[in-house]
């Protein structure tokens, strides 16, 4: 879709204010939910199915990516029947390799683009980067916003860039990375979320994973609430992807609780919620096996790709 007419756009400098302490208190409250027994097992299966299994390193090779893809399709063959992950997330140069490796599995290929992770490149380079990834077979594109322009108050620039990348994506779904660790306040997280959604994002995503802090529960809560408000305003569902820093299944389940209580049933699927993570999958698998066997697990029994 094209960008909505700018006359309908909100004043992004006037987006809702966020009180950080209140957000932290609310986020902490989700962690007091006690998730036991079948609720835990079902939650863990859901988490596994929501993972964007990620490798985004300078030293990535075709070999590494192929191994990761195998893991994505066969998380833990000792327990057949487990759901696969949602997607593989790689650099554009690895899209073709990954696409071929997961062929027929239903697992999506997500590619970062737009001069990931800094985004410090001219717009035409970013558009070419995006088109390249899509042409190579990416189902989803994870772009980064221009944080420098955002801090300069050039909200229209940021908006237009997202809209342009959305156009370049064609059929591919667009995830917009806000890199919340560089935005500085939750007010700005909310503002960036609103800009991204109005500009055509299919998903909003916290982080590249290259900056600390990456995803946190308070940041994710602010973004989920932005999605909720946007949904009430437009009727359009937007997906959410916290990325980076979620490596334990207990924390992932807290996120799931947050999604359930903020957005409800419709978002409890990998169509609308993802975890960007690399080491989370194995921890989830260990917990699933523990739930099924009643025995605490060792990492030695779970493949580390």
């Amino acid at each position: 879709m094209g960008a909505p007419s700018s006359t309908l756009l909100p004043q992004f400098s006037l987006t809702p204010r966020i009180d950080q302490v209140g957000v932290e208190e609310r986020a902490a409250r989700f962690t007091t939910r006690s998730i036991k027994k079948e609720a835990k097992l079902n939650g863990l299966l859901l988490v596994l199915n929501m993972i964007d299994l990620t490798t985004l390193e300078g030293k990535d090779t075709a070999g590494k990516v192929k191994q990761l893809c195998y893991k994505a399709m066969h998380p833990h063959d000792a327990y057949p029947g487990l759901p696969g992950v949602a997607a593989i997330c790689v650099y554009p140069s690895m899209v073709k390799v990954a696409k071929k490796a997961v062929d027929g599995s239903g697992i999506k290929i997500a590619s970062v683009a737009t001069a990931f992770p800094s985004g410090q490149a001219p717009r035409d380079v970013k558009i070419r980067d995006t088109k390249y990834a899509v042409n190579e077979g990416a189902d989803e594109v994870d772009m980064v916003i221009s944080r420098g322009k955002f801090h300069e108050g050039e909200y229209n620039y940021v908006f237009d860039e997202i809209a342009a990348i959305k156009e370049a994506c064609g059929e591919a779904r667009l995830k917009v990375i806000l890199e919340t660790g560089e935005l500085g306040t939750l007010d700005k997280v909310r503002r960036a979320s609103d800009i991204a959604m109005h500009a055509g994002a299919d998903f909003i995503k916290t982080s590249t994973g290259k900056i600390q802090p990456a995803a946190t529960m308070p940041v994710t809560l602010v973004m989920l609430e932005a999605i909720r408000d946007f949904y009430y305003k437009t009727g359009k569902m937007i997906g959410m992807k916290p990325a980076g820093g979620i490596s334990k299944s207990k924390l992932a389940v807290h996120y799931l609780v947050m999604v359930k209580e903020v957005l409800g049933e419709d978002w409890l699927t990998n169509q609308w919620f993802r975890f960007g993570a690399s080491s989370l999958a194995n921890d989830v698998l260990m917990q699933i096996v523990k739930e099924k066997t009643g025995v605490y697990q060792s990492a030695n029994y779970f493949s580390i790709d």
């Binding site: 660790g181 939750l186 600390q212 802090p213 946190t216 308070p218």
Partner: peptide, 10 residues
């Protein structure tokens, strides 16, 4: 803001 998590961003 930022008392409990001083130094850790938010």
């Amino acid at each position: 803001e930022n008392i409990a998590s001083a130094g850790a961003g938010y």
